[in-house]
Write a protein that binds this DNA or RNA. Structure first.
Length: 205
DNA sequence: GTCTAGATGGCCT
DNA sequence: GGCCATCTAGACA
């Protein structure tokens, strides 16, 4: 059970690096319920991961690393799992967890989180009328948590951006379906690589 | 160098 | 539903 309200951030328990060494689709599902944390000069904010998408690299037309395309941007995807892959999309920054063993450029996009700690700071960074609009999208959550391109290439274990152990949902609370916003990715458009926690109000759609 | 499309979000009608 | 901000990676010349 995740505790609400006041909480000592020192009680966050880092997920070990071994956690990231598993098949990308399983990692995408297993990340649900864990806690994405970011510490900056302004303070610490965190959110429970409630929606993810897997990008399977070489064979996945929707992935930046399709056909093992190796560029300055995708370089980090070729590294060991657990690295941070951030990139700019229009006016926003999106955050991914690098997956797949070294040389296999896969990743998991974090599409939505449920605000957990540091909510005041998040609201200061991202004033919203409806609470759920704080973090119910990949560009929204990065702004609320203060994640940006300076996080590119870090790891999720032992840096200002990390993932702490939370409480994964029951298996029957996990839903799966096609990814969002990749209409021009050929047949990859319909691959069911998106995972989310059923009925969670912070899921993007 | 130039051009284009994009794993989005906010505001408009 | 539509429009567009804002900017960079990637392709091509």
């Amino acid at each position: 059970m995740i505790r609400r309200g006041k909480l000592n951030i020192n009680s966050f328990k880092l997920l070990p690096r071994t956690f990231y060494h598993q098949p990308t689709l399983k990692l995408a599902e297993d990340l649900l319920g864990h806690v994405l944390v970011k510490t900056t000069d302004e303070g610490t904010t965190s959110g429970v991961i409630v929606e993810t998408e897997a990008y399977l690299g070489a064979s996945d037309q929707a992935a930046h690393s399709y056909q093992n395309r190796r560029t300055k941007r995708t370089e980090i995807m070729f590294q060991t799992p657990g690295h941070v892959y951030t990139y700019q999309m229009h006016t926003h920054c999106l955050v991914n967890v690098v997956s797949g063993e070294e040389g296999n450029p896969q990743a998991v996009l974090i599409r939505a989180v449920e605000p957990y700690t540091g909510i005041e700071l998040m609201e200061k960074r991202r004033p919203v009328k409806k609470p759920k609009n704080l973090t119910n999208g990949p560009g929204k959550l990065t702004k609320a948590l203060g994640i940006n391109m300076s996080d590119y290439g870090r790891t999720f274990f032992g840096s200002p951006i990390y993932i702490a152990s939370g409480s994964p949902p029951e298996k029957e609370r996990v839903e799966r379906g096609p990814r969002i916003g990749i209409d021009n990715a050929g047949e990859a458009r319909d691959y069911p690589y998106r995972f989310w926690i059923k009925d969670n109000p912070y899921v993007s759609r």
